[in-house]
């Protein structure tokens, strides 16, 4: 099977919709296809990576531990928009995984460099 560079673009906050959860499922399944996977978090997608999520009282599964497991699936390229972080008052220390901060102008290039964009 061909190896394509796949970029998963996450733009939505968790729990309000199921897109964050679906993106995790797809990344984990996608990793089995030996594709070159990168994750990008822009807009409200950043909130998916917020530390300390506790969903006990809303009775929805807390899927945030999955981000820490990505490394075991060889999904190591996690990019976050620097501008989106600043706009939302978030700092690197607020996030539950190590990420690479990129400027929005660099993200334009990143999207261009990938063969496939999956958007969530």
């Amino acid at each position: 099977m061909k190896i394509k560079k796949c970029l998963y673009v996450n733009r939505r906050a968790p729990y309000g919709t199921s897109y964050a959860l679906e993106a995790i499922d797809m990344v984990l399944i996608g990793s089995a296809f030996d594709q070159d996977i990168s994750l990008l978090f822009i807009d409200d997608g950043l909130f998916q990576l917020k530390k300390g999520q506790d969903t006990a009282d809303v009775e929805i599964k807390n899927h945030s531990p999955a981000y820490r497991a990505f490394e075991m699936y060889d999904v190591e390229k996690i990019y976050v928009s620097k501008e989106a972080m600043a706009a939302r008052g978030l700092k690197r220390a607020d996030l539950l995984v190590d990420v690479e901060l990129l400027s929005d102008s660099r993200i334009k290039e990143l999207m261009d460099e990938h063969d496939i964009i999956f958007s969530f």
Partner: peptide, 11 residues
């Protein structure tokens, strides 16, 4: 804000 985001990231 979809258009706004699109314009921010469209090369």
């Amino acid at each position: 804000n979809n258009l706004e985001s699109c314009l921010r990231y469209a090369k």
